[in-house]
Design a protein around this nucleic acid. Structure first.
Lengths: 323, 323
DNA sequence: TTGAAAGCGGTACCAG
DNA sequence: CTGGTACCGCTTTCAA
């Protein structure tokens, strides 16, 4: 058998007789033969791998996106190369100067990262197809929910229940993540208020760092010092919403009787707290990004733009009528 | 310039004049040249990448290990290829038959996975250096805490506070993860009880699936039906411990006044609940595995055995004297 | 110090 | 349907 025939047989290409193919496959299995991805990749100019840039492994959104990415990649027999790039510019520079451009991947996914203009330029100039998940950025295609509309919907839910004094527990836009998400959610919150004829009070804009602990601290401060207590909280993430619930408990307040809380995300922990939320589907977003890029790599269609990722209102038990 | 000289210059090898090297580096930078990892890997018989098998992206232990693995890999300019292999044997077979043996990685890390004998054999026969993190398995080197001693220490803490009726909230050993961790923790629990002259009551062995929600449900059942209420809970993981705390709250019980709770892990969420726990350092375990394997790949030393990973007692506010 | 040339392990084109 | 054979882009040995 020539190497050519073996190669064809093993990859399921045509022009190989059935019996030849079977023989080759059997022997390959016996020998435990597996082609070298390096050699194959070199010859084909492909790597059969996607790269993903994540801000952190331990953060829910990114991890859940990876779940979907991996699922879709696995179907296509692609591998997944992950680069964790914290919020430090130094780490990021390393990745950009070396790994990204190292031709180890056929495409790139970035998770809600706040790229610098230089980085965006590098990404664009590089021929690697790239998509950003969790908030789009100029120059790179993005897939994500409609931040503003989602925030508005959450706020409207609270308004409809009669709440007028609502705290917006938001993420700080300056922590290296894509600032557009915090900004967009703020905007949607204010829009809803304004549309309902409720005044926007800047003191009700509180920062919880997108983390449970920080949100709890921030809300504790609000509940401790406010001359007048808010009756509801709109949190830009479920983890912050749970922090708000714990803060309410810290103050002996009942949820939702004394304080209503709504979040965004659909974090699994929300179930345990009966959290009302607007759920998104990070795994679905990741899977969509992969299948689209895979399609484009195969020459089917070019440069699709993504529609807004869907969001689902999940009504549980942390929101109720204003007291 | 010949390709040979360029190759030497760019990789910092000797036998290149300083000025030649500088020129080459400058031009390479201008051109944005980056060597193809495939070609380089093919020529050197190396991939400069590690593979990691994780049960799930969204589970705390694995994600935290990845954090440490990535940190150490990045230092060495290695890339990280991740294979998520749920608990389904089918998915795993895919990985084993294809990816693992695909020569995309120089070494393999597996996170607390319950390999079948066949899989173990494949791993062993393959020349890939491998280490298992979070519970060792026959045939593969492992790095992890001393399950039994840690569980015993946690239980002893409770006993010392005067508790005699202790529930062990354990993980179910049959969910695809390494069963030795649940078994070892059970053993340590019973040892401590026996050493203290306390009878082991099988009805106090409750399964929480290593998850918060399941643990809460399980504990709710205990608290609802027990003729006599336990005064303390030893949970095999912090997430389950938090589930127990929520269950206590569900029943209007105060922690630790009515029920003491201790966990194992050092999960960040524990901080928010004041959880007393025996913390381990998953990132450190991952980093150690990587640096060791890296060393061995470079020919320095061979087949190190790992000492037990350390554990730290963190006393917070969920344990107190028995009522 | 530098360059020439032989692989590394596949793929793909072309001829038989 | 099958085999021969130039590469793919880089590393490495050997000479110059």
């Amino acid at each position: 058998m020539s190497t050519a025939t073996v190669s064809r047989a093993l990859r399921g290409l045509p022009h190989v007789s059935v019996e030849t193919r079977d023989t080759i496959k059997r022997i390959a299995a016996e020998l435990g033969y597996v082609p070298s991805s390096n050699a194959s990749g070199l010859a084909r100019g492909r790597t059969d791998a996607f790269g993903v840039l994540v801000p952190s492994f331990t953060e829910w959104f990114g991890a859940t996106v990876l779940e979907g990415v991996d699922r879709e990649l696995r179907k296509a027999n692609f591998d997944l190369v992950i680069y964790e790039i914290g919020t430090s510019a130094q780490q990021r520079e390393r990745v950009f100067n070396r790994s990204l451009l190292r031709n180890r991947t056929d495409a790139l996914l970035a998770l809600c990262i706040d790229f610098t203009p230089v980085e965006r330029e590098q990404l664009a100039s590089d021929d690697l197809p790239a998509v950003m998940i969790g908030g789009s950025v100029r120059g790179i295609r993005g897939i994500g929910i409609d931040e503003r509309a989602t925030a508005r919907q959450a706020t409207e839910h609270l308004l409809a229940l009669g709440h007028h004094d609502i705290v917006h527990l938001n993420g700080n836009p300056e922590i290296g993540l894509n600032p557009l998400v915090a900004l967009g959610r703020r905007k949607g919150f204010e829009e809803a208020l304004t549309a309902a004829g409720v005044a926007v009070d800047p003191r009700r804009h509180v920062f919880g760092d997108f983390s449970l602990a920080a949100a709890r601290t921030a809300m504790n401060a609000v509940l401790a010092t406010s001359a007048q207590r808010p009756t509801a909280v709109f949190a830009s993430s479920d983890e912050m919403a749970i922090g708000a619930i714990l803060a309410a408990w810290d103050h002996g307040l009942r949820v939702p009787d004394d304080l209503s809380v709504i979040g965004i995300d659909g974090h699994p922990l929300g179930v345990s707290f009966g959290l009302t939320t607007l759920a998104q589907d990070p795994a679905g977003q990741g899977a969509l990004a992969v299948s689209t890029l895979l399609n484009e790599l195969n020459g089917h269609g070019r440069r699709v733009r993504f529609p807004r990722a869907p969001t689902t209102f999940i009504s549980r038990s942390t929101t109720g009528p204003a007291p």
